[in-house]
């Protein structure tokens, strides 16, 4: 927590991912709800994720959501007042949680898109 300027980046990245999410979530909703009438089938999803452009967009969405959501949670918890040691532990816990979510999400996206071979 100590380094100066760290909070500036955290805030700027929160704002940037927020704006990015408005666009990416809109695309995500359009593709999943509005492009066809009703929800997509397994085959539709697999076809979407086999497209590298869509894959990249969805991975960007995944990373932006993870950062924005967990950093938002961090702000809420910090608002409740934490000691510097508590804040450091919180940062590590949220980092680990974010990394796990990212690994899971990337695995899921690559698997459904058939990028891991053997499908």
């Amino acid at each position: 927590m100590g380094e100066r300027g760290y909070s500036v980046w955290a805030w700027l990245l929160q704002a940037f991912t927020g704006l990015l999410l408005v666009v990416l979530v809109a695309l995500h909703m359009v593709a999943n709800h509005f492009a066809k009438r009703g929800l997509l089938t397994y085959r539709d999803v697999a076809a979407l994720f086999a497209d590298p452009y869509w894959l990249v967009l969805q991975l960007a969405l995944l990373f932006a959501v993870i950062y924005h959501g967990l950093n938002g949670l961090r702000a809420v918890i910090l608002d409740a007042g934490l000691s510097p040691a508590g804040a450091r532990r919180l940062d590590w816990a949220l980092f680990a949680l974010g990394a796990a979510m990212a690994a899971y999400g990337v695995g899921l996206a690559l698997s459904i898109g058939g990028w891991l071979g053997s499908r």
């Binding site: 927590m1 100066r4 300027g5 909070s7 955290a10 805030w11 702000a75 910090l78 608002d79």
Partner: peptide, 9 residues
């Protein structure tokens, strides 16, 4: 101002 209990709260 630029610390966790400063403007960022």
């Amino acid at each position: 101002a630029d610390q966790p209990h400063g403007v960022w709260r």
